[in-house]
C-alpha cells in the first residue's frame, strides 16, 4: 500500500469511527462538564487527539471506550487550565442552561435538573451506565475505582434522584 492510500484509509477509518461515536462523545462531555459550549470545545480537542493517536487503536471494537477515555482526559485538562467555578442552578450561563432545556417535557426537565445537580462523583458513573451502556466493571476501569465503589455511587445517585422525583410529585 503506498503512502497516499494508507493516508486515505486512515482518514476513512477515522471518519467511520467518529461518525458512529460522535454523539456519545458529545453527550458524555456535556454531562461531565454540564455546559454545552465547553462540551463542544472538549470534543474538538478529543477529536484532534484521537486523530493523532489513531494508530494506537488496534481494534475498532474498542473505539468507543478509547474515545470516551480521551474525552474524559480532555475534560480534566480543560478544567486544569480553567479553574472550575461552583455551578449555581439558579444562575446558569446560557450554555449551561441549554443543557437543561432540551424538550418541552416538564417531568423530564425536572429530572434533567436533578441529574445536573448531582455531584460529579455520582453523575459520571450514572451517565456511563445509563447512556453509554457500561457495566460496573467497565465504569470502574475508566474511573479508576473498585467495583464496590462504583456500585455504591450508582446506588446513591439513583436514591437521590428517586427522592427528588418523589418530592416533585408531592409538591
Amino acid at each position: 500500500m503506498n503512502t497516499s492510500s494508507v493516508e486515505a484509509a486512515r482518514r476513512r477509518r477515522f471518519d467511520r469511527i467518529v461518525a458512529v461515536f460522535h454523539a456519545d462523545m458529545y453527550r458524555y462531555a456535556a454531562w461531565l462538564c454540564r455546559d454545552k459550549a465547553i462540551a463542544e470545545d472538549v470534543v474538538q480537542e478529543a477529536l484532534l487527539r484521537a486523530w493523532k493517536s489513531l494508530d494506537a487503536l488496534r481494534d475498532d471494537a474498542a473505539a468507543k471506550h478509547w474515545l470516551l477515555t480521551i474525552v474524559r482526559r480532555e475534560n480534566a485538562r480543560y478544567f486544569e487550565r480553567r479553574r472550575l467555578e461552583t455551578v449555581d442552578i439558579d444562575n446558569l450561563t446560557a450554555s449551561q442552561a441549554a443543557l437543561l432545556a432540551e424538550t418541552p417535557n416538564e417531568e423530564l426537565d425536572e429530572l434533567r435538573e436533578s441529574i445536573y445537580e448531582l455531584d460529579d462523583d455520582y453523575r459520571e458513573p450514572l451517565v456511563l451506565q445509563v447512556l453509554m451502556g457500561y457495566s460496573t466493571t467497565e465504569i470502574g476501569e475508566l474511573m479508576g475505582l473498585k467495583q464496590g465503589a462504583v456500585l455504591t455511587r450508582l446506588h446513591r445517585a439513583r436514591l437521590k434522584l428517586k427522592e427528588k422525583v418523589a418530592d416533585e410529585e408531592r409538591s
Binding site: V18, H22, R27, K36, L48, R112, R158
Partner: peptide, 19 residues
Amino acid sequence: LNLKIAKAMQISVPELELP
C-alpha cells in the same frame, strides 16, 4: 426511573464539525 433518566440524558447533539 431508569428509563426516565435515559430519556433525560438524551440531549440533542450538534452537527459533527471536525477540527
